[in-house]
Design a protein around this nucleic acid. Structure first.
Length: 957
DNA sequence: GAGCACTGC
């Protein structure tokens, strides 16, 4: 358990050196001490001891505080919910401090301290807390004395204040140089002036810099660095290490571009209304800290109630090798339990060593004599790095006894007995070898993440275990839902392994302002008041991250050297790898790192040295509606499990703190225990096809842990039937079997298979690859949007539609021999392009295997579109009078996405095929091409009737 | 004229 924080630890020395007692920060921490003080003198002594010297002010405020706190004790004792009361009284106290300062500032002495009327209250509060009566009277007398003292002190400080004020006014009339003097004095009210002085200077500097940079600009400041994380790299560090080495030149250039942007922003901000902004700034900073602290006070009872104690293993064990991992103590027990049970649920927090050690124990115990040990991971990088680590620990070469298998990369051999793979990969293995007879143990790691693949693996493996009594199953999960796994696997025993986790204090802050402003305030609060340690802030997405980054940079500029240096790093998946790598950069001593991250930091990336976490309580979550066939991405509350995971990130290297920007009540009552599993929020057509290919027909009784809705199931079956993958009996057809071979959405597979018939398999294969790498092909930086748009337009020339445009992008890239430079010039993401190339290569192999001829006819665009329609005939939009489109066989009205090249084609195309529907601000079709309605009758006569189509445009048929 | 959390085969 952490000790009660001393004032010294709370108020950094730096802060002490320039802040006077009246600063709200010091006021708040004084309030904290006064919680446990027996007299105003004790408070004063303690403060002096720590170097806070506020002169007479200190005494008067200490007395004031003491009385207020005593009174709040009383209130707390009365109330049924003591914590609530304590919070309330602290808020009152905070308000009072503010009043007090105002009173002093306005030199209005006749304001009577209504709160002081609680002198009698102080006595009852003390008896409530068990102090004997004699002392009680003493307190009472003291309180009355204190009241007199306060009056006297206030009068004195008023006079002093007026004196200072006069002086300041004079100084204000002086030149800026005179301000230096004020700076030295470090008085509270001169703070504004000091900042303004600093600010003015900054503006001057920034303006100069700006004109310089404009004069020296070569116009070519933009550069988009190469971003694809090559698959050959083993772990994160190596991955990033290589990434930053790879393209240093571009990186520096990008940096200077950023600086340049930053300067521009500053100039704009400063020259417009700097005076007002500076004032606001001062207020905002004080005020937000104020509110934050109102509930953040480290009072003891508050701590006990809301502090989550996470398991703790002494630090001295770290780094002592395998035997010092927490799991080691459980080795024998584990092996015993595995011997006795077929299925075992293992709960182990991060750092327990389960992923690396368990397979090794099993190997040592001889399980590999009967067959391989397979361990699944939800992520590629994890599978690779864990395998590499285990290979080192076992002293073998990676790919020999220990290997990994992920898409595009198989690093295993005949010898391999311990195999790490992604969960999707295991699913593929199932289709070629449904009984997995060469394997003796299957370990499903990170099961709590509940990816679609792990969910399916659960059912398959559960079934398999019944058939094969020699097969052992290990399901490893995080704490919260272990019982659910156990129940699912017929009450399998649960073994808990402690993690290597330090305690994390969890503090709540009910947001008052916008959540982003709260995040900024909380960050600064930690930075100014807390001991060293990096901060991790969880936000929803790129946009929020960039906003917060900008806000923080502005604030830091203003506080300058007063505050320790704050190094800010954004972190999200779409960020170029070079910039992601910066989170690992060493920082100067005394500086503090702030990482503004999305969910990527919750699971995928572990960052050392984080001691503070700020949790917005939000994330973006994708969802899919089978009824409208529409996907969307929405900001949602995270689950309790996620909240715990996020908090846990603060306790990896030492005891930490987590500030949650939501109320405890919200956590308790609003948040779900676990996030809705992915399988219930996504389109499951490919899941259904995969299962069909595995010979599973009875979906009604298929043992899903959480079954997808009937609606989405029916929708999926209907679509597969329409695509010709299933016959009228619901059995897989020849085409269906072929479709299941491709790692693509079934509509894309269908289109690919049809392409041979239209003589354009090469082209359609490229389009399929491009479409399967999301929407991350084109890149449009904010400041160069027009240029990016123009670059994109070149591929859309002739209004050929988005599909053909993608084909042209790929082919142009291929002509430049896959050049990254070309990507930069054309505002295209090299990372996505390389991924598309990998996908394309894989498709090509599969096509060859399937005996599909790779014919090519790049000039027959109609043929290409017909092939596309062979897979996407259910995705047809018809122009309505209003300019919106209606989905054939659907009811929604949608529009062409403004980013589509077809959006600006006039007149609007009447019939279009689209890749997908998305709900953002409106309902949009993404990736659109014009088609002819008569093709529909040619391609999908089983799906559309002539009559049906004639209703819309009779003449076109 | 809008905006893409994160994975995976």
């Amino acid at each position: 358990m952490p000790n009660e924080p001393s004032v010294k630890t709370l108020v950094s020395e730096k802060l002490m050196s320039f802040l006077r007692f009246s600063h709200p920060l010091v006021v708040q921490y004084t309030a904290a001490i006064s919680q446990n003080a027996n007299s105003p003198e004790e408070i004063v002594d303690k403060l002096l001891e720590y170097g806070v010297d506020g002169g007479d002010d200190i005494r008067s405020l200490a007395a004031d505080l003491f009385l207020s706190v005593s009174r709040s004790d009383k209130a707390a004792a009365k109330g049924s919910n003591s914590r609530r009361h304590e919070e309330k009284s602290l808020a009152d106290l905070a308000r009072k401090q503010r009043q007090y300062r105002l009173i002093v500032a306005e030199s209005d002495g006749d304001d009577d301290d209504d709160h002081d009327s609680g002198a009698g209250g102080a006595s009852s509060s003390k008896s409530a807390s068990g102090v004997v009566g004699g002392e009680d009277d003493k307190k009472k007398r003291k309180a009355t004395d204190d009241r007199e003292v306060i009056r006297a002190l206030r009068k004195k400080s008023r006079q002093e204040y007026l004196k200072k004020r006069e002086k300041e006014k004079l100084q204000q009339l002086d030149d800026w140089i005179a301000e230096e003097k004020v700076l030295l004095e470090g008085l509270e009210l001169s703070e504004v002036e000091r900042l303004e002085y600093k600010h003015n200077k900054e503006i001057l500097e920034a303006t100069n810099k700006f004109s310089e940079s404009v004069a020296g600009s070569d116009g070519g400041e933009y550069r988009f660095p190469e971003a694809y994380d090559g698959d050959g790299l083993i772990d994160q560090r190596r991955r990033f290490g290589a990434a930053s080495k790879r393209d240093t030149g571009g990186f520096e250039k990008l940096e200077s571009w950023e600086d340049h942007q930053l300067q521009k922003a500053t100039v704009k901000f400063g020259s417009k209304n700097r005076k007002r902004e500076a004032d606001d700034y001062q207020l905002l900073f004080d005020d937000s800290l104020y509110k934050l602290e109102g509930q953040l006070l480290p009072g003891k009872s508050l701590d006990e109630e809301i502090t989550q104690k996470l398991d703790y293993v002494s630090k001295k064990h770290i780094g002592d090798g395998r035997k010092c991992l927490p799991i080691y103590q459980f080795k024998d027990k584990l092996l015993q339990m595995i011997r006795d049970n077929q299925v075992l649920v293992i709960v182990g927090e991060t750092g327990s060593g389960k992923t690396t050690q368990l397979p090794q124990y099993l190997h040592e115990a001889g399980y590999t004599k009967q067959g391989k040990i397979i361990c699944t991971q939800p992520r590629r990088v994890a599978a690779m790095s864990v395998a590499a680590r285990v290979a080192v620990e076992m002293g073998v070469k990676l790919g020999h006894e220990v290997g990994f298998k992920i898409r595009f990369e198989d690093c295993t051999s005949e010898k391999t007995v311990v195999e790490y793979m992604t969960d999707g990969m295991l699913l593929r293995e199932f289709s070629s070898q449904p009984d997995l007879k060469n394997c003796s143990v299957i370990m499903v790691d990170e099961a709590h993440e509940r990816t679609v693949s792990t969910d399916i693996i659960f059912s398959l493996v559960k079934d398999l275990a019944r058939q094969r009594s020699d097969l052992k199953l290990l399901i490893s999960s995080a704490t919260l839902d272990a019982e659910k796994f156990s129940d699912y696997f017929d009450c399998a025993p649960i073994l808990e392994i402690p993690g290597r986790q330090y305690p994390v204090d969890i503090l709540y802050k009910q947001p008052v302002d916008e959540i982003l402003e709260e995040a900024v305030a909380a960050t600064l609060h930690i930075h100014v008041t807390q001991q060293p340690g990096d901060i991790l802030v969880f936000l929803t997405g790129q946009e929020d991250i960039e906003t917060v980054e900008e806000m923080l940079r502005e604030k830091v500029k203003h506080y300058g050297s007063k505050m320790g240096e704050l190094i800010i790093h954004p972190l999200f998946a779409n960020l170029p790898t070079e910039l992601q790598a910066r989170i690992f950069d060493p920082i100067p001593e005394k500086a503090r790192k702030v990482i503004l991250a999305t969910n990527i930091a919750e699971t995928s990336l572990t960052i050392e040295g984080i001691r503070y976490v700020i949790d917005s309580g939000l994330c973006k979550l994708s969802s899919y509606s089978p009824r409208t066939d529409m996907g969307s991405l929405q900001v949602t509350d995270i689950s309790k499990a996620s909240a715990m995971q996020r908090a846990g990130r603060a306790g990896r290297t030492g005891p930490g703190k987590c500030i949650r920007l939501y109320a405890p009540d919200h956590f308790q009552n609003q948040m779900e225990d676990n996030c809705v599993p992915e399988i219930q929020r996504s389109d499951i057509v490919s899941v259904v096809l995969t299962l069909k290919a595995l010979g599973i027909n009875d979906f009604k009784n298929f043992d899903f842990m959480d079954p997808p809705s009937d609606e989405s199931m029916i929708k999926a079956l209907e679509l597969l039937y329409a695509l010709g993958a299933l016959n009228s009996k619901g059995d897989l057809t020849r085409i269906g079997k072929l479709m299941a071979e491709f790692p693509l959405d079934p509509k894309l597979s269908r289109m690919l298979i049809a392409a041979e018939k239209y003589g354009c398999a090469e082209e359609v294969m490229t389009i399929a690859a491009m479409l399967s790498v999301d929407n991350a092909i084109f890149y449009s930086p904010k400041n160069l949007q027009a240029m990016a748009e123009n670059a994109k337009k070149r591929f859309e020339d002739g209004d050929v539609g988005d599909h053909i445009a993608l084909l042209r992008v790929y082919n142009s890239w291929k002509e430049t021999d896959f050049s990254s430079g070309w990507c930069r010039e054309n505002f295209i993401q090299a990372r996505s392009m390389k991924r598309a190339r990998d996908v394309r290569d894989q498709l090509m192999n599969l096509m060859e295997k399937a005996g599909i001829e790779l014919n090519s006819n790049p000039n027959d665009l109609d043929a290409i579109k017909k092939a596309i329609m062979s897979g996407f005939f259910p995705h047809i939009g018809i122009l309505q009078g209003s300019g919106s489109y209606r989905i054939l066989k659907g009811l929604q009205n949608v529009q062409i996405h403004p980013k589509s090249g077809m959006a600006r084609v006039q007149p609007n195309p009447r019939w279009v095929v689209f890749h997908e529907l998305v709900l953002t601000r409106k309902e949009y079709m993404r990736h659109v091409s014009e088609v002819k309605p008569k093709w529909l009758l040619e391609i999908a006569p089983h799906y559309y009737e002539r009559k049906e189509l004639e209703k819309f445009f009779p003449r076109q048929l």
